[in-house]
């Protein structure tokens, strides 16, 4: 018995209104940048003398070229993380958690290996963990190279008729469809 998500006829308009409200009240939704910000915070804690987050009279900068670009925008966020995008992403996790409390929690076996992956790559936890980790490396490396992820490019981009959104969606589905179809032949 698989718990059914909201039907697209209801979930689609609701999600659409929500991402519209984000643009109306603040700015388009995006997530993947916050992985860089957290990295920078951790790096700075680990090596405080490496100059990863440096405050100067003009603002923030970094010895890392990526954090220092655009006038040190990312270094500034790591230096003072109480900003809109960081709060948004933390609140997003709280919202998902609260929703799961209402909806009923994820079954125990499912937590380590989701059914579709169990059916195809087996129920061996460590293998699933390695695949999830490798997937995470690829997803975030790709997202930062692209300058955005599924939320920032695909949803927020395409809804603004941004050409980068269409190009990103094309690139992502170009590999995601064949990979999923080769890896996940059995239906869990």
């Amino acid at each position: 018995m698989k718990p059914m998500p909201l039907n697209w006829k209801i979930g689609g308009p609701l999600l659409g209104i929500l991402v519209f409200l984000a643009v109306l009240l603040a700015k388009p939704i995006g997530v993947s940048t916050q992985f860089v910000v957290l990295d920078a915070v951790l790096w700075n804690l680990q090596q405080p003398d490496a100059g990863i987050v440096t405050q100067t009279a003009e603002g923030f900068t970094s010895t890392n070229a990526y954090l220092a670009k655009s006038g040190g925008a990312l270094a500034a966020e790591a230096g003072n993380p109480l900003t809109y995008p960081v709060v948004f992403v933390l609140a997003m996790m709280v919202g998902a958690f609260l929703s799961s409390l209402i909806r009923s929690t994820v079954p125990k076996g499912e937590r380590n290996v989701p059914a579709m992956y169990r059916a195809n790559t087996g129920g061996f936890w460590p293998l699933r963990w390695v695949l999830a980790f490798a997937g995470g490396v690829l997803v975030l490396y790709g997202a930062r190279l692209a300058g955005g992820c599924t939320s920032g490019h695909m949803m927020s981009g395409m809804m603004q008729t941004s050409i980068s959104g269409y190009v990103f969606a094309f690139g992502a589905f170009l590999t995601a469809f064949p990979t999923a179809m080769a890896l996940l032949k059995k239906e869990g």
Binding site: A132, G135, A146, T150, S151, F168
Partner: peptide, 27 residues
């Protein structure tokens, strides 16, 4: 609006692999 460059296509394709392998995207 974000800039469109070669990295968008290449990065999207790299993300696509990981997305299918893991079943997760960043959010």
């Amino acid at each position: 609006v974000k800039a469109v460059h070669v990295g968008v296509l290449l990065g999207g394709a790299i993300l696509g692999f990981g997305w299918a392998i893991a079943g997760y995207c960043p959010g």
